[in-house]
Write a protein that binds this DNA or RNA. Sequence first.
RNA 1: GCACCCGUAGCUCAGCUGGAUAGAGCAUUGCCCUCCGAAGGCAAAGGCCGCAGGUUCGAAUCCUGUCGGGUGCGCCA
Length: 578
Amino acid sequence: MAEDFYQVLDRDLMLMLQQIFSGVTAENAGRFHFSPPYDASHGDLACNAAMMLAKSEDVAAMVLAETIAEHLRNWSAFAEVSVVKPGFINARLKVSFLTAELARILSDPDYFSHCDVGAGKRVNIEYVSANPTGPLHVGHARGAVFGDALSVLLTRTGYDVTREYYINDVGVQVDVLARSAHGRYLEALGDKTQTFDAPLYSGEYLIPVGGALAARFGTTYQNVPESEYLAPIREYTIAAMIKIIRSDLQALGVVQDVFTSERALVESGAVEQTLTYMQEHNLVYRGVLEPPRGKTPEDWEPREQLLFRSSDFGDDIDRPLIKSDGTWSYFTPDITYHRDKFARNFDWLINIFGADHIGYVKRLKAAAAAFSEVPLDILCCQIVRFIKNGAPVRMSKRQGTFITLRELIAAVGKDVVRLHLLGRKNDAHMDFDLELMRQQSLDNPVFYIQYAHARCHSAISHAKAEFSILPEVTAEELAAKLITAADHRLLCKLAEYSGMLRRAGSALEVHRIALYLRELAKELHGFWSQGKDQAELRVVVRDDALLTAARCQLLCGVKQVLADGLGLLGVTAVDELR
RNA sequence: GCACCCGUAGCUCAGCUGGAUAGAGCAUUGCCCUCCGAAGGCAAAGGCCGCAGGUUCGAAUCCUGUCGGGUGCGCCA
């Protein structure tokens, strides 16, 4: 398993501390690490070990820091090690150590995929799973891009990822869909009296489905009772909706591998099997629930149901599986579905939920815990407020005022949608200002990062034009040439990338990639601008071909890291801005 | 009433699993294009990190309470 830049340093630190201090073991050593200090004037790296050890060793942190620093001074990686007041150990890296990392970025074909914290474990990530009753709308966008980017990130950090969509193709919603489609079908056959009020779906997207149904079935279902037309119309229409949804996802750059049908699961008898299993394992009982506190419904009456002992597994109350009328609750097939996922031998399940399903998390985790040791993580994406003309857009399905995903992409572009939604923690509330995002203003980080990438490209091309032949640069020359403070900062920033990815992966925090890219872009822009005042800080230095070649290597590294990070987020890296 | 999420600069948000003087972008105010792309850079200003306790060498970060905002919660799906 290959280690990244910071892992190597931290591992060596741990080994060294174990040699010096008897109290340091493999277990607690993970707390000691190097990290980039927030203030660059402190150096390239800060180490927290002395302060962490002060108590267990019963020695003043400053004394320990001096001891540790003395050892660190022997490391080949460091040019300078110093100790500062509370007990920080600050270190400055040798340029050769940083340029060696740059060389790996440029020459190692596996550099961007060598992280193996996942160790090939099989993880299933379920996301979107919107009801197949129509095109996706903006409410689905965040979960879609987050699930997609998380899948890419976990793949990159060594997991074997399956991306899954669960199709809720059973129940009232899809029956309503079928009735609506049937109305459009009659319309297509010439009946102009059809209406599509309240419970029916009035969206225009069903009109072509009606036409297709007419072409497919002719007049077969024109004058037959619902019991005859419902199933075939429903099947056809759901397939049409899935097709629309998949194409919506594709427009966002989101791909999923497995589409699991609830109906197929139900028809296989898996739900009954699950109920039998739960009965055999004493996970259910017949009982009556208390009315919900503080908000007792007027028509509440206690009725006996089949309940899952979910409160034994961390839920607040037990949950109904079979309702008093003898039918399953929504939860029952869903439990079955997760049991099916467990049966497919994943090592880890992740569900991406919208904020409107937060209340569902505990019971599902309870069900998972009752069935398997395999961990289930449920990540919720908070509501995105869409702002138009300075005011939040009120969206209502009934009034047809919700913005579709297609409209959003058409308005601002896929890259803007993705980077903006991926730029914040998934569980943070956020705004999406449609005007700002359309303006391509500085509020929009896509252009800032793409601009940095384009500048790298531009400078490298310029260097190639200026010097017909750029000299080869040896490792020694690279280290000897990239010695200014500006070079140094860029090199340090590049070296952070691999460790940042590893941490983002283990924290399931995709937004860190976006933050990092912004930081790297900022360093690049700063680097660039210094060349305006001082010609020797430019990429192209006319009287120094070797320096120019070295700087080109540096910018190649920046360009590659920017492109890789943007690629992880599904955002296009461009060589030129319009 | 209960559960989950969020309260950090005027606004939108970071803060790397407990570290140094809490950071970015936008907006405001000043600079920097005869010079690799100014869609950029530099600088100024802006803060009781909602509030109150606790844990410890050390808290925006962890715990408890509390107040505000959001989302959800019934035998709906």
